[in-house]
Every structure is written in structure tokens, then in C-alpha cells.
Simulated scan of single mutants.
Amino acid sequence: MTSPTALDGAILAALPAGGQVLSVKRHGKTNWSTGFRIDVVIDGEKHEYFVKIVAQKEYVGMSEAEYEGQSALATYIPDNTVAPVAWGFFDRDTSKSFFLTHFRHLSEDTPSASDILAIVKKLHLSSASPTGKFGFHVTTFYGPPPMINDWTDNWEEYFTRQFRANLVYAQQERGEDPELQDLADEFIRKIIPRLLRPLQTGGRNIKPTLCHGDLWDGNIQIDVKTKQPILFDSCCFYGHNEMDLQCMGDPRYALGMDFISRYKDEIGASEPRQDFYDRHALYAIRNNICTAGMWPQWAPLLTTAKEEMRRLLSKYPDGFDGFKEEVVCSC
């Protein structure tokens, strides 16, 4: 689709009234969506838009998800997001959908760790769930896998149901793995409660924070005009802020564990603080399982996930029953 006349009527209706479409050019593609730049003249002035088209019926909800997620992010970090314009279903075929935003000229250079940290800090400290619960008001997508965003007061419940669903997805894509499933069953029974239940017991609690949900260097680029880092391709939910770091610690990402430690030092770790790095490992396991399911070349990450699960099971063999409150000397 490179001709203005090829644009679906729903997309044309979402553009400003009275505008003339000059050109439609391909701009980016994933396995589940295709992007186009649309140049429009309005009252003699040129404007640029970006539309992402989801043409596979099973992923049609992605457009609404991105619209709602980016809208939520723009509430707290308006200078650092791709602010949405519209979303909708095609007039000609409601099994297809689109997400429309203003086009930004982005540099692929990764912003500095300090700049990213400042934005993430602002997002995590200033945002709050509209319901006071964990979840989101629409289904969002971590690539193809949907997030189970039903509202809940319990973070352990939210994460556990997502972890289970991601295990199913990975094995649907890469084949059944009895070793992985047996290991994961014990992991779910012992390690998830051990690392997440203390966040909301013993007088402790955590605030449901707006998370970008897929925060890694590939989804953060620099606006050539404003010089500001821009966060895009979100998978938003209100959750434990530390889960937003799930993609950042592994060596395959640009930021690495130094960024994780800087986050801990500047923004702080949830109590119990001594579990911070193991909670990060838990969230990273979930990311590795999803990534292995999405991309065949990353299938070996399932082995990495198994190794990490074994490590944590060895460290916490008694699960939550082995949790001991940290004793602080008042002398």
C-alpha cells in the first residue's frame, strides 16, 4: 500500500478534516503489524502521520491496546512518548485494525542511561492506578502474547497467571517441554510466592505503578527535533514497578545490570530490599520465556530460563515457608 487511494476509509476519517493525502510510504514492519508514513497537506502546511496496521485477525486488538497504553504514558511523560491520535477497525474489513499517531523522526542511537533513568523514574514515581489495583482496562500485548489484565489487589496473583499463560504460549510455539513444565510447576509453587508474597505481607505493600511493559533499548529512540528520548511499542499495565526492568539486565540488551543497580540506588527497591536482584531474576525469566516463544532464533533462552529457575529453587528450597523477616538492630 503506497497509494493514498489505498488507505482504508476509517484511516482517512481519522486524519484531520480538509486535509489532502500526498503520499503513503512503508515505514517499519513486524511479524504482526506493518507501518506507513502518511504525508498530509492541511491549509497549505505539510503534516506527517504514522499508521500501524494490524492485518491478522488474532492480533486485531493490538491497535486499541497501543492507543490506550500510549495515552496512559502520555499522561505522565508527555515529552517522551508517541502520543496517539486514533485507532479503529477498517471499514472494508473489521478483522483489520489501525493505530494512528504523529510521525516522529527518530534516531536509532540509544539514549544515555541517565536520560532513560530520569524518564523511567518520573513515570514510576508519578503514576498511580485509577482503580488502586493491578491490571489495565484493556488487554495489552507483549508482542503476540496477550496480557491478562483483569484487575486484582494481589500482585502475586497477577504475575502468576501471566507466568502460566506465557509458559503455555512458549510451548505452543516451540513444542511441549515436559522438563520445563515440571520445573515451572515447582517454581510457581515455591519461588513466585517466596519472592512476591513478602511485598504485600508483614505490613508491607506496593503501589500499582504504570509500567511501559516492554522497556528495552529497541523501544527507546531519540527524537531528532526535540533531542528527547521517545518510548514506544508499549505493553502497558499497572504493576510492580520493578517488573518494568525485566528486559534490561541481560547482556543482550544495551543497558545491562549496571542500569538495574542505578535504578535500585536512585529510585529504591521495594521491601524486602534484600530480594531485589532475585525479583529481577524472576521477572527476567518471564521475559526470556516470552522471547523464546516469539522468535525461533531465541529458543535457547528456554534453557537459560530453566537454569535460572534451578538456581532460585536451590536458593529457596522451602519457598515462602522459608522466608524470614529481616531483623534490624535498634541498638
Rank of each mutant, 00 (worst) to 15 (best):
G268S: 13
D39I: 05
G143E: 13
R26I: 13
Y169L: 12
A6S: 15
A113C: 04
S63C: 07
N219Y: 06
F99S: 06
T303N: 05
P4W: 10
K133E: 15
P272H: 00
A281W: 03
R189Y: 04
E176K: 04
S71H: 08
D258K: 11
S129Y: 15
Y283F: 14
L117S: 06
S33T: 00
Y283D: 09
A74D: 11
E108V: 05
G28M: 08
F98A: 14
L22T: 00
T94V: 08
G143A: 14
C290D: 03
K29C: 05
K315E: 02
K324L: 02
K46T: 12
C247W: 03
S330Y: 01
M257S: 11
T110L: 03
L117V: 13
F320V: 11
Y67N: 01
L125W: 04
I77N: 01
T291M: 12
A299T: 00
Y49I: 08
D39Q: 12
R37E: 15
L313N: 14
E157Q: 15
T160P: 13
V85W: 09
P251A: 09
D214K: 07
D109A: 13
Q246M: 13
I206V: 15
L210V: 03
M62W: 07
K264R: 07
D177T: 09
L117M: 15
M147C: 14
G249D: 11
S3R: 14
F90H: 10
G35L: 12
R197C: 11
G9P: 04
N288K: 15
I191M: 12
E108R: 04
F232P: 13
I267W: 04
M294H: 06
S107C: 03
S129D: 14
I285Q: 10
R92P: 10
T201E: 10
Y142Q: 07
E156P: 00
E271R: 02
M309E: 03
K133T: 10
T110Q: 13
G213D: 11
L183Y: 08
T81M: 08
L73C: 05
A165D: 15
D250Y: 05
F259S: 04
W216P: 11
E326I: 00
K121P: 01
D223A: 01
R311W: 11
H212D: 14
L215G: 08
P193T: 02
V60F: 06
I188Y: 07
S234D: 06
T34E: 09
P16F: 09
P146W: 07
W151R: 09
V40K: 12
N166T: 01
A269Q: 00
Y277E: 10
D8A: 07
L199N: 07
I191Q: 04
F320N: 06
Y142M: 13
